[in-house]
Design a protein around this nucleic acid. Sequence first.
DNA 1: AATGAATGAGGATTCATTCAT
DNA 2: GATGAATGAATCCTCATTCAT
Lengths: 193, 193, 193, 193
Amino acid sequence: MPKLGMEPIRRAALVKATIAEIGVTGSLDVTVSQIAKRAGMSSALAHHYFGGKDQIFLAAMRHILTVYGAEARGALVMADGPRGRVEAIIRAGFTTTNFRRDVVAAWLNFYVLAQSSGAARRLLTIYQRRLQSNLIHALRPLAGDRAADIATRLAALIDGMYLHAALRMDGIDNGTATDHLLTLLDIELKAAT
Amino acid sequence: MPKLGMEPIRRAALVKATIAEIGVTGSLDVTVSQIAKRAGMSSALAHHYFGGKDQIFLAAMRHILTVYGAEARGALVMADGPRGRVEAIIRAGFTTTNFRRDVVAAWLNFYVLAQSSGAARRLLTIYQRRLQSNLIHALRPLAGDRAADIATRLAALIDGMYLHAALRMDGIDNGTATDHLLTLLDIELKAAT
Amino acid sequence: MPKLGMEPIRRAALVKATIAEIGVTGSLDVTVSQIAKRAGMSSALAHHYFGGKDQIFLAAMRHILTVYGAEARGALVMADGPRGRVEAIIRAGFTTTNFRRDVVAAWLNFYVLAQSSGAARRLLTIYQRRLQSNLIHALRPLAGDRAADIATRLAALIDGMYLHAALRMDGIDNGTATDHLLTLLDIELKAAT
Amino acid sequence: MPKLGMEPIRRAALVKATIAEIGVTGSLDVTVSQIAKRAGMSSALAHHYFGGKDQIFLAAMRHILTVYGAEARGALVMADGPRGRVEAIIRAGFTTTNFRRDVVAAWLNFYVLAQSSGAARRLLTIYQRRLQSNLIHALRPLAGDRAADIATRLAALIDGMYLHAALRMDGIDNGTATDHLLTLLDIELKAAT
DNA sequence: AATGAATGAGGATTCATTCAT
DNA sequence: GATGAATGAATCCTCATTCAT
């Protein structure tokens, strides 16, 4: 074990462990000790690097949003035409990275956290605004004035799919979830013409 | 003079207080004492009537689902034609009773609870199945084979709207939420023909 | 009906135990558990009744000051003539109740606490002002303009004696401490004439 | 190139930082990290040089006592006649070096420390004995048999003044504190004749 | 010489739950 | 029926201290 530059490694390990632990427990009732143990260190060290439980949670949340954002951005760059851009945004939410069981569980829990924690809400709001704005931009050429409304429904359906997935209901998986979203997109655009 | 028939009154008060308290806190991190205090009794009495915190939560969840179910059933009876039946089901989710701030917050939290509590998940599953089945029945005459798929999207969008409402995103309120749902219904049916 | 009226009993026991524990340890590094144990209850109950460690300390401090104040007032009422009044005030600080080892140790620690705790400082200031004012009133007829200055020295010497007593220096005990104070009073008055 | 002779510099920095930190906090609840940070080094190094927190405190205490002793000795050498010697001793306690806010705060805290730490008590006792003995020697020619008693009162009043100063009571400053002491000396000597 | 890394031990505080009355 | 009393079992967090580099 090297003696220097441990911080980023430890932080990453803790973030990863936090998501995993939330995934297993299915709630935020996770102790710092559990997280630290899973990350292979003492709880004291976890506190040392993050300052407190809340900040560990926020870091995990930030991580999930960052990864999501990165994938979405990457997909957008490669996308072809307006319709392709919307698809890219939608698909980004259901990649194997983002639509893993524990990540979805964490996601849902962060939504709940956002109700009581200002910091969490701020984070989520930023993400939401970006998603909404991306969707609207991509939809404008296809649906004109209706872009905003359609974006709202798409965004809500994405979250709805996450919610159902979190409960493993309907046997939703990457594929079917994406299908539902794309179907919605199709009929929205058809109706908009 | 012993008070008779206090039990149902106390239980109802506790259930109501639980929902209110979850609404205020925005999470399940609510103590039995808080709930009991709001319900105007000692926490010991709350335990006496419910046996434990988990059961208080379950009772509150059951209450919400029951009220929702009752309203939906009532609306269904009055509904006119297949399309009217679907509308009735959708509208039931956004009445002022069911779409109140604290109820929505509790709803979201119960979704989370369902991830860690088998009993909670069972409750939710029952409700989900009933909703799904009601929707499919109502949609069948209108959309044939596509009924199931459409029902899934409608159900997911309902939950998505709840989620966004819980975070006061998009300025979602009764009216706009219902509008979005009915719009989805419209275009789904148009596309199904 | 449950066991009633425990609160004052518990609080008194905790205050007493706090003083004793500070006396034994000689510092404020006393755990709530130690205090609670000595008082014959769980630390949880201590928290229940006082809300926190700080408030336990403040209550103990308040208790000491209250007892002191009561004795001083009592002695003042019985005192004969101006000189008698000054003596009464002085003697009150060195009764067997107030000049006990643990009380003196607690006293000293509260002085230190007052440096970091606003609440503690306020308490101490009130006591100090009352002592000063009592002394000045009693001294005025005897020393006129010099009353204030003399009072300051008397008060400082009282505290100095406490300090020395806390460290068992100079073999200070009730008797000698009082003697020193009265001697100071004598020569102050002689010089004031 | 290893830095040579860092040890005394580091130790001095730590001692200084300790006193400052105690002065700021107003208590001994100061962490080694705080001290080390203020001294511009890691807490590990502080341990390396002193072996432990207790020893850092003791070193700080020793430092204060040493400085005080040095000033007192210096003043004694220059003093003129018995009365001048007593004055010199008294004034030494209230020089701007010794009567600084943080030094006084540290002083008071060391008194408290002496109640629980044998080493601290020993240190303080040595200082006390030296002060007492110095005072008695100087007073003997002026007050004969009464020297010891007067010395006790003078010493106690000095500490009392420190205590009041620590709490910024009575608006005590160098000047007024010294005045009170010298007044006491005056009237003691007058009474002794 | 110097420090980042790491932890064990401990302490304040909270809370669901039980019990006697 | 109802509650004050009481606690054990966590849980977060802090900190002195050690160690490898």
